[in-house]
Nucleic acid binder design. Structure first.
Lengths: 226, 226
DNA sequence: ATACCATTCAAACGTTCGTTTTAATTTGGA
DNA sequence: TCCAAATTAAAACGAACGTTTGAATGGTAT
């Protein structure tokens, strides 16, 4: 009989991924050594190279494990809303909520989700080109899907402007999640508030929706003048 | 006679700072070795430790050189606008413009400004705590000043909400500037557009202004419900 | 010229890194 | 039970890192 379920097939593999997630978040990729990583995972130094091949492959695996699930969840939520709406285009707020919600739902997960979300936020601007392109590839399907949804919701908005505003929205989300305990550039912000995901979600969504729906003429004027 | 002006007093020091700015932007702090850095600067390997003391001190010097100037310019622009307004509070758009404008003016500078702006954007979420706190310290005076200006412009907005929206605005700016040639998460964005700073400034300002002035009731409802 | 100072230079230091190797151990199916 | 494959373990590899050292250099004032 098959008792695989009793002892997970890739126990140390998973422990390594979890340890990597946390250490990469805390210290970055380069500053995290294989020795401290395997020590934290309770594994041998050679275990990473055995299970993943190299440190770089481990980094890729860390992102793949979570990002695939996240973007699948995003698309599923979007399609659920679309089915619910029955043919009619969704509201911008609904689309924003589907995208932002998944991130914030994950940051509420104390296990490892929070570590990953922060790691992800700071990796968007990682100097290493390979890492960035990997993330871009993992995001691509969801991005195409959401872009299409926004185009349907905002048919009057120029495509180029929409892309920029999606870019701004994405940046706001990324920075907000990455910086949840980092730079306190603006004094007076109580850290306790930062983990009230409900309140943060409402604030963030209101900000993003307003930005997305900002009047057009400002940029249009500049373009006409140029 | 004094001929110092013909040969700058800290020539190699400046060359090292410029090389560091570029290499840190391209590869990050840890991935940039002293050997490639000094080679690019045309200096000896020991030059960094002689002029700055250590690699970490060099990193600090890179940020200090530019950030002090940037924030001084921001505050000066803000005070110019306030003097021009003569006692009346500035509009949110004016305040945003004063903050954003300095960054975009600097990214137009092909010399080294662009390198620094991108380096700065990706360092806000650097894993190293010391680097982040250094940036926080260098930003503090300007942040206090702009916070006060926003409070004067938006007396009806709750302080806590304002701080969050400033946070969002800052994140959008940081990500946008840092990612000017990094992750292309949303397809269809022509890279040529990304350096039309005029157009970018108009787009960014419109987005930020709308976000800052977003209706309040969304977050308030959630807070009431909690 | 001489002494002096800041700067530059080549060389080496000790440490840590990611990876590899080889052997021991555990695991699962016939 | 036994074998083969999968996994873990200990040790060592060469390379690259940031930093230090002590001598050489070049300009400046006495």
């Amino acid at each position: 009989m098959n008792l695989r379920a009793l002892k997970p097939p890739h126990e140390t593999r998973t422990r390594i991924l979890d340890a990597a997630e946390e250490l990469f978040m805390q210290h970055g990729f380069e500053a995290t050594s294989m020795r401290q990583l395997t020590a934290k995972a309770g594994a041998n130094l050679a275990a990473v190279n055995y299970h993943f091949g190299s440190k770089d492959a481990l980094i890729a695996a860390v992102f793949q494990r979570r990002l695939d699930a996240m973007n699948t969840a995003r698309i599923a939520e979007l399609e659920r809303l679309e089915k619910e709406a029955g043919g009619r285009p969704l509201s911008p707020r609904q689309i924003i909520g589907a995208f932002v919600g998944v991130s914030l739902r994950m940051i509420e997960d104390a296990k490892g989700g929070r570590n990953f979300i922060r790691l992800l936020g700071r990796t968007y601007s990682d100097p290493q080109k390979e890492i960035r392109s990997l993330i871009g590839r993992l995001y691509a399907p969801a991005m195409e899907r959401f872009k299409a949804a926004f185009e349907r919701a905002l048919p009057q908005m120029p495509r180029e402007e929409l892309i920029w505003r999606m870019h701004f929205m994405f940046g706001t989300l990324a920075y907000t999640l990455a910086a949840t305990d980092t730079v306190q550039l603006i004094a007076g912000c109580k850290p306790e508030d930062r983990y009230d995901a409900r309140l943060l979600e409402a604030r963030l969504t209101a900000f993003l929706e307003a930005g997305l729906l900002a009047p057009l003429h400002g940029a249009a004027d500049v373009k006409k003048a140029a």
